[in-house]
Amino acid sequence: MTGSRVRAAKGQGGLLREQLLDIADQLLEEGGADALTIRAVATRAGVTPPAVYLHFASKTELVHATCLRVWSSLFLELEEVSRGVPDPVTVLYETCVAYVAFGLRHPSQYRLVMDGEATEASRQNADACFRYFRDKVTACLDAGVPVESTTETARLLCASVHGAVCLLIHQEHDAWPRDIARYVTRVASAAIHGALLTASHASPPSMSAVMQSG
């Protein structure tokens, strides 16, 4: 389907750029990375490909900008769930919940960024996410949680939530758990309990340890 022609008045090139990104995001949601091309964006916008190239020098740059814009909303969501919560461990839990939920809501963008196809977007977002989690772990340490290494603990948390997202988004949707909300909260709970309980030492699991923790 071709949309109405997009025109930007003089001095409103930024508005046209945002409209092109809106279309690129729609194409990603509808057909994944293969559907997102300069020509497809131009066709849906009702402009010629050169008009798109005025804002994005290549498909890679277009993908990069589209992914970064979506991912910027993640950090707004993470800040929102943290606002007004005094317990840093609860904040860390809610951060994990929000992260996994975000990835499952934006599977195409998540795959593009975290699988490395949008190279610069991948680097920026991976670094930003890691630093965000490490800051939250540091807050737990400051509150008295025995954390030997904030870097190692943050790395374990990132591996847990990233793995939980990837496990589903690389499968057909009908293979996903029926109760996604329960999946998300259990992943977050398991990640927090696992990472923080082993934050000061990594002891091998045993039947007695599991029974005691219950």
Results as ranks from 00 to 15, higher is better:
S208W: 00
S206M: 01
T185P: 02
A199W: 02
P177D: 01
R186L: 13
A199G: 09
V187C: 14
H201A: 12
P205I: 10
S189F: 10
P177E: 07
A191S: 12
R182I: 00
G194A: 13
I180L: 15
Y183S: 01
A191W: 11
A190E: 10
P177G: 06
P204R: 15
A199F: 12
R178I: 09
S203E: 11
V184T: 12
A202K: 10
A199Q: 13
P177C: 03
T185C: 02
S208F: 03
A202F: 11
Y183P: 01
Y183I: 01
L197T: 11
R186Q: 15
R178G: 15
L197R: 15
A202G: 05
S206R: 09
A181T: 12
A188D: 05
P204L: 15
H201W: 08
S208I: 07
L197H: 11
A195L: 04
P205W: 07
G194Y: 01
A202V: 14
S189Q: 15
V187F: 01
S203L: 10
G194P: 03
A188W: 04
I192R: 09
S200K: 07
L196H: 06
R186A: 09
L197I: 09
T198A: 11
R186S: 13
A191F: 12
I180D: 08
M207L: 11
H193T: 14
A195R: 00
P177R: 03
A181M: 05
S200F: 05
R186D: 15
H201C: 06
S203D: 11
P177N: 08
V184E: 04
H193V: 15
M207E: 08
H201S: 13
A188M: 07
S189K: 09
Y183R: 02
A190L: 13
P177M: 00
A191L: 09
H201K: 10
A181S: 14
I180C: 00
A195W: 08
P204M: 07
V187W: 02
V187I: 04
V184G: 10
P205H: 03
R178L: 03
S189L: 06
D179Y: 00
A195F: 06
G194W: 02
P205G: 03
S208M: 08
P205L: 14
I192K: 09
S206Y: 02
S189R: 14
M207S: 02
H193I: 11
S208Q: 04
G194H: 02
T185R: 11
D179S: 07
S208Y: 00
T198K: 10
A188Y: 04
V184K: 08
P205R: 03
P205M: 10
H201V: 10
R186W: 05
A195E: 06
G194M: 01
A202P: 07
A190D: 13
P177K: 02
A199Y: 05
I192H: 07
R178E: 12
R178W: 08
V184F: 06
H193C: 04
A199C: 14
R182V: 05
L196T: 09
A202I: 12
D179H: 03
L197E: 08
A191V: 12
V184C: 08
T198Y: 08
T198R: 04
A181C: 03
P204A: 11
R182Q: 14
G194L: 06
Y183G: 03
G194F: 14
S206G: 09
